[in-house]
Design a protein around this nucleic acid. Sequence first.
RNA 1: UGGCCCGUCGUCUAAUGGCAGGACACCGGUCUUUGGAACCGGCGGUGGUGGUUCGAAUCCACCCGGGCCAACCA
Length: 768
Amino acid sequence: MDFIRARISRDLKTGKYGGRVVTRFPPEPNGFLHIGHAKAICLNFGIAAEHPGGRCHLRLDDTNPDTEKAEYVEAMKRDIRWLGFNWGEHLYHASDYFEELYRYAMVLIDKGLAYVDSSSEEEIRERRGSVTRPGVNSPFRDRSRDENRELFVRMRAGDFPDGSHVLRARIDMAHPNMVMRDPLLYRIRHARHYRQRDTWPIYPMYDFAHCLSDSLERVTHSLCTLEFENNREIYDWLLEHTDSPAPRPEQTEFAPLILDYVVTSKRKLRPMVEEGLVHGWDDPRMSTLAGLRRRGVTPEAIRTLCEMVGVARAHSRVDIAKLEFALRDDLNHKAPRAFCVLDPLRVVLTNYPEAREEVFRAPRLPGNAGESGTRELPFGRTLLIDREDFREDPPTGFRRLSPGAEVRLKYAYVIRCDKVLKDTAGRVVELRCAIDPDTRGGVAPVGRRVRGAIHWLKAGSAIPAEVRLFDRMFNVPEPPDDDLAAALNPDSERIVTGALVEPGLVGTPPATHYQFERLGYFFSDPEDSRDGSLVFNRTVTLRASWEGRAQRATSAGEEPVSPANRAAHAERGKTRAGPSSPSASLRTAKQRLDFGHLARLGVSEAAAVSLVRSPRYLSVFHLARASYAEGADSIASWLVNEVTRLLGSDDRAELERLEPAALADLVRAVDTGRMSHRRGRTVVAELLARGGGFEEACSGLDLEEIDDEAVLRAILEEVVLDYPDKAAAYRSGERRLLGLFVGEVMKRSQGKADPREASRLARAMLEG
RNA sequence: UGGCCCGUCGUCUAAUGGCAGGACACCGGUCUUUGGAACCGGCGGUGGUGGUUCGAAUCCACCCGGGCCAACCA
């Protein structure tokens, strides 16, 4: 289970949202959905479908009138449905919330948390500062409530021109998170909105509209991609200060889907369409869902890809081979087989009578030979094969046709090439071959081994087709934003006009999948293919074959992992300037002073550095030390290692509750051997969760510890008996397995065993 | 010279302090009327250094590496 689903299960368990699971997919209708969106769609709609009563809203995030169009909304709905998801009645538009949003803005103004800034765009930018430099306050920041109110009302009334005023949150211009430096909430834009027409001269910004839209829809889990991490702070701030109802939606970020050699950004895709680098949003080379669909990629394959990729927070880049795998896996069992010759070469069978004609049957799908599952292939004296399947000078290992060699014409005969005919330019124009009548139906007599099998068509019976061969659109894994055109693969679209397909394909309707045997999966173009003139798009080749592999190794882009690359990888992360000490990272004089002091008290460097950075910890440390002076290092260690750990993982733990004297008593008890370290942890958790003194905490806890050798030995023997192979592995040197045995003892004793003793005994038993 | 986030086989991802596992890719084999499919096998990983712990991929610190943030875009 991924971390988001785990989080939702936890919320379900704690009842945080009363058992509700509401997600949303919120695209801005300013372009077409692409494969990157597919991940978000699968995640949001997938999660909703997994929970009874779960919902996923489709919300068009249409707050920018300049870029949005109804046409894009329709395309998005079509693409989501095609992917296999349904929003039911939950179709929403952020623009429908403009009135409520406006009222929320008024709430902030009334609280003195928002103001109208009349600075110019440049001034605002300048005063924002930079990532390393704090911003400065706007001169309009301290306008009165009444003035802000009046100005904002007039902004809405359309009294002001574009850019003359904005509404901003009043937070902190020196905030380390740039997003929090008085973010813009509203801007004036006298533009026609595709839905609201001319109703509004002001439009809310993303940060303002998004969290409140989520809240208005009672969304529980607002999932977005990693680049919005910084925005989570304003998301929470706005919900809190507009008094939005609890329980509030929670934003969680996950890694976007990034594919090698593929552009997944509407910002990059749009210019490609507008500048004519491609034929449109649905160009089969495009990563848009419309493009993929037109190419023949199936929704099942895209969903499988998303499952394979998973959901995590680590920045990742997915190998396109994963999509190809999912595609072939899907198409393999649903695409009927057919013969297609891309580059015809004439073959005349010298020992086959001119007048003779046969019809062979071949399975539509492999392993399916029944009458209804077969197709008919006419055969005659003159055939066409693919030029690629003949080599006058075959490389070693070549299994197809060459002078004097034999090859199997699938489902027909084994033939031998006797003669090669060329034109005056030396180009091969015809092959003279002989059939072996004993191999009729393509079945070779026992003991006869013919390695190669090729596809073919009977001349005169084949029907013409246009075949479009697509390759990756870019030559580099990560095309640069600024110069997409330069990264373009000039051979990404190869149109073969003289191809031929078997006669059974006459009248193939648009949008039909085939596997052209030995060539790949193809899809009749949904737009351009018609009865009299078939057009097929190559969806994906068959898995890299002998020749495919050789080609791929030399083709653009691929960079095999060289030993040098490996070495570089291994070197990654090594410290260049030699080992540096943690204390060298101390920045302020005060920290260095405190550090020196702690060091003199005997506190280890690692612990001291941590304490010095946190005044809260440091003060607890000093107070605890006052009642256990000789335990300075131990106290520091407990504070830094154990208390931090609990504070990070246990919601009930609060540093403020910890009484320093209780900590001191605890540490002393462990130091003197009165209590084991493990029990000490249990106690410290209690002190953090409930407070109180050391003895008091102990008395409320079951601190029983089994250190009786006979009891432990008995448990251990049981464990060894249950894991004989692991015991043997341990004896033969797998020392890491000790953890398994000790862990089992801990489990079986409900955590009461003394692990130190158990570990000692386990070692003795297994080694002795 | 800021804040936040992230580092597990080549790639993606599990392991919630106790056996580092799966998928894709790659390599090899069996089979085969697709150099396909299927089946079997193999290769290969916790960025580094310390610390805490009986025990660390997991907790702490530092270092190294990567990403995001300075639109009146989302």
